[in-house]
Design a protein around this nucleic acid. Sequence first.
RNA 1: GGUUCCGUAGCUCAGUUGGAUAGAGCAACAGCCUUCUAAGCUGUGGGUCCCAGGUUCGAAUCCUGGCGGAAUCACCA
Length: 614
Amino acid sequence: MVILRIFAVFNYNQVQYCSMRIEDIITGALSRFFAEKSLPQPEQSLIQLQKTRKEFEGDITLVVFPFIRLMKSSPAETGEKIGSYLKKLPEIHDFNVIKGFLNLVVESSYWNLFVNESSADSNYGFSPHSPKETFLVEFSSPNTNKPLHLGHIRNNLLGHSISKILEANGKIVKKVNLVNDRGIHICKTMLAWQKWGNNTTPSDAGMKGDHFVGELYVKFEKAYRKEVDELVKNGMDPDVARREASLIKEAQEMLRKWEAGDPGVNDLWKRMNGWVYEGFDVTYRRLGVSFDKIYYESQTYHMGKAIVEEGLKKSVLRKKDDGSVWIDLTHKGLDEKLLLRSDGTSVYITQDLGTAVMRQNDYHADKMYYVVGNEQDYHFRVLSLILGEMGYEWAGSLEHISYGMVELPSGKMKSREGKVVDADNLIDEMIETAGKLSSELGKLDGLTREEKESIINTIGMGALKYFILKVDPRKNMIFNPEESIDFNGNTGPFIQYTHARIRSLLKKAELSGIVPERKNQIDFRLSDKETGLAAILHEFPQAVSEAGANCSPAIIANLIYELAREYNQFYHDHPVLKEENIRRRDFRLFLSVLTGDVIRRGMDLLGIAVPERM
RNA sequence: GGUUCCGUAGCUCAGUUGGAUAGAGCAACAGCCUUCUAAGCUGUGGGUCCCAGGUUCGAAUCCUGGCGGAAUCACCA
């Protein structure tokens, strides 16, 4: 930290700020080119700049195909003409044309200036805050009848990371959680505890509260299934059996009592939820996620019911003869949707209506994001449609960030069958593996136990988090418990290691009394690895904004990985402290400073910490 | 059955306003530590981008139709 600051403030005065980015310089020149030729200005979308592929010489490539019509010349000719015009720019060193591609070699001085400026900018790549826009991000949203599993880990990490990314894009972000603390599933666990719990508590059992309650849930489901099977064996229709089994009847009766405010049921409910929250808090802390506000379904479903009443008055909703309330969405290509059961109890979507209104009243947010699995795509379509039908003008600001399921090689995880990858177990395993690897490699010898534990924790969690977040959120992903999560290659620890290397290098520089200077005049040309590294760093701001626009941490993860890989190659090929040309050495130091900084801040957007050494 | 999403190397994944000879990692094999951290670097092998048409200078990407998989369409959440 200290070193970074020294490097950052050094020669602050000499640094010119707000230099134009090369893309803008080229676009501007292109515009002048067409004006000088008295040709019509090409539309912005025709100007396609991309990174030059590795096998060709150059840094930035202009695709010239779109211009051949405007200029009425062949691709090669067009490329030559534009290329020689652009070469007059001080930022363009050279060019070559291959097929319809104009490859531009950017002047080393441009990259040097870029590295000088960016490495002195502690906010490089992020947008300044615009207090106008407030975004709400709902994530986690656990049920209180079972502990968190790998699917919840994905949800929590995505929600946390997306919140950070939106903040980096200048939004004000409020993270909210909606706890599904009421409903038939909780009644099942309460019933199980009454029947088989023997009045024990999690501490009696020596378990985390959420695990303790989760076992009761599984116990209920097993007993319930057994009862249904027996009824079926005695000749009952399976559907009828599922409805008529005494266990489910009892659970439903309990739900009715709960909604009626029965004190005994309520006390037990509070007690058991309390156990679960204690357990969740531990897991949240380990994952490093937190919330600005926690909503409880038990508090929002009243509002939901009130909205249903209002909808009935407005005749947007319709009550059937049996007392159940529905909305007809057939004109939108969907079905009829139930909003209240015939016994007057509310369903899942009822409380979501209430929650949405309550939140809008609380925050008046410009957007309300819901990080919820893609199995609920239909639910959220219906939710915003209903709010729209009911006349809430902000209904359009709801957005479902729909992410894919985490599946096992055998298929979907099923809590009811106990076929899940438990979050706490997985975290334990990751940290254990990190510890084993660290001691095998002897990396942490000579550190105190606290330091070791902290670093091992950082690495284990880094491996887990990166493993989840590098995948496009929208896609389903497969986790194979038989194969442990890697610590080499495209992984969190690889990136963390790169950071540790850089920090170690900079520390060494400081200890050797090296104080680099930012010089905007240089007397050398950059190597391929140096420009390659600078070019990836140059892409960081765009990655941040794209990640924000697409709510995709994977975009950040992929860029940071590419950056780390490139740095390791650079590090392997080039001496830094031993470089004899002082200006070159200083450039490499600032390149390292910037790389370390972008890795640290990029990983922070993923909610992953990076160690000073490992 | 209707709707939505997905299909890229043995495995896990990038490749998203249509751009060059489709890329990484893992796994396998072969190298590189007296030198700023080898959790690293270098190399080899590995592809019908599910199939078939269409759109155009150009398609893994867009359109249509198939095939395969997943989710959803509950008085479950």
